[in-house]
Simulated scan of single mutants.
Amino acid sequence: MLDKSSNTKGADFEIDLKSSALVVIDELGDVESGQLSDVLLAPTLQTARLVDAAHGIKMPVIYTNDAHIPGIDRELLLWGEHGIAGSAEAQVSPQINVCESDYIIEKRRYSAFFQTSLRLLLDELEVGTLILVGFDTNICVRHTAADAYFNNFNIVVVPDATATFLVGEQAEGLEYMQKCYAAKLLNTDDIINLIEKKSTNL
């Protein structure tokens, strides 16, 4: 969590990569061959770059994946069958290089925090800043950002590694998280540049 002396006002806080984790939200299935490839492929490839960069400095990479139970999960009543536990569509996209050292958290609601072990894992890893990527910007990313803010984490959202395709507009969702959850917005290249600078100092 944040140190009590930390500045949490909007984009003012500095990113401490030593206490950061990359959280990949619902980047699932083979997006290259999917119906939404025109929307999802580009941000997925940006996430793949971030994952590789995070691996290079041993930053924790955490995948939070839909794992719905048919006939039980209320979310399926709204959106139809998707992300069914154990299915290929509930696995991390093959465009992303998952390593054995990465963590996978299964979730049944929008937020990656809701009744999962994510908070416990972050505490054990001594993480204070979450770098959020994934889909949908206005649903699972936004609800995860809300819970991260309520739990006093610093938040970075990566606009070019997220996408909106179900509700609202991308810019609107990003602005909401920036204003309401003090999220810092940094694109993939910005974060990779920070990681490369850290690597040269290792």
Score class of each variant (00 low, 15 high):
41 L>A: 09
33 S>Q: 12
177 M>A: 14
84 I>Y: 00
130 L>T: 01
136 D>H: 06
174 L>W: 08
55 H>V: 13
149 Y>V: 11
158 V>R: 02
180 C>T: 15
66 D>A: 06
34 G>D: 12
171 A>K: 14
51 V>D: 02
12 D>K: 13
1 M>R: 09
21 A>K: 01
165 F>I: 12
65 N>V: 01
199 S>I: 02
190 D>C: 07
142 R>L: 12
39 V>T: 12
129 T>E: 15
73 D>E: 11
194 L>K: 14
150 F>Q: 15
113 F>T: 08
57 I>G: 09
25 I>A: 01
149 Y>R: 15
188 T>K: 02
75 E>K: 01
155 I>E: 12
173 G>A: 14
113 F>V: 06
185 L>D: 01
151 N>K: 09
91 Q>G: 04
53 A>V: 01
137 T>L: 05
11 A>M: 11
102 D>G: 01
134 G>W: 02
70 P>L: 00
194 L>A: 11
34 G>K: 06
107 K>N: 12
34 G>Y: 14
15 I>R: 02
183 A>Q: 11
200 T>A: 13
166 L>D: 10
202 L>R: 05
135 F>M: 05
4 K>H: 12
150 F>V: 10
81 E>G: 03
6 S>C: 14
185 L>A: 06
11 A>C: 13
62 I>Y: 00
171 A>S: 15
178 Q>S: 11
43 P>N: 04
63 Y>K: 01
13 F>C: 05
108 R>G: 04
126 E>S: 14
142 R>I: 03
168 G>W: 05
92 V>R: 01
74 R>P: 00
143 H>N: 13
146 A>L: 11
174 L>G: 08
37 S>H: 14
77 L>A: 09
30 D>S: 04
167 V>F: 07
143 H>I: 00
55 H>F: 05
41 L>C: 13
33 S>T: 10
169 E>K: 15
86 G>H: 08
116 T>L: 10
171 A>G: 13
38 D>E: 11
193 N>L: 14
111 S>I: 03
100 E>V: 02
161 A>Y: 09
198 K>P: 05
124 E>V: 09
62 I>H: 00
16 D>W: 06
196 E>F: 08
22 L>V: 03
46 Q>K: 01
202 L>T: 08
139 I>Q: 10
34 G>F: 07
32 E>M: 13
46 Q>W: 01
58 K>Q: 12
132 L>P: 03
165 F>A: 10
55 H>Y: 02
187 N>Y: 08
78 L>V: 11
148 A>I: 14
99 C>V: 04
25 I>G: 02
67 A>H: 00
47 T>N: 01
29 G>M: 03
12 D>R: 14
195 I>K: 11
67 A>S: 06
148 A>N: 09
157 V>M: 08
127 V>T: 05
78 L>K: 10
149 Y>D: 07
102 D>H: 06
103 Y>V: 07
31 V>I: 00
164 T>G: 01
133 V>G: 03
94 P>I: 02
82 H>D: 05
14 E>Y: 02
94 P>R: 00
140 C>M: 04
22 L>M: 04
182 A>L: 08
22 L>F: 04
39 V>H: 07
170 Q>L: 12
179 K>Y: 12
64 T>W: 07
160 D>V: 03
3 D>L: 10
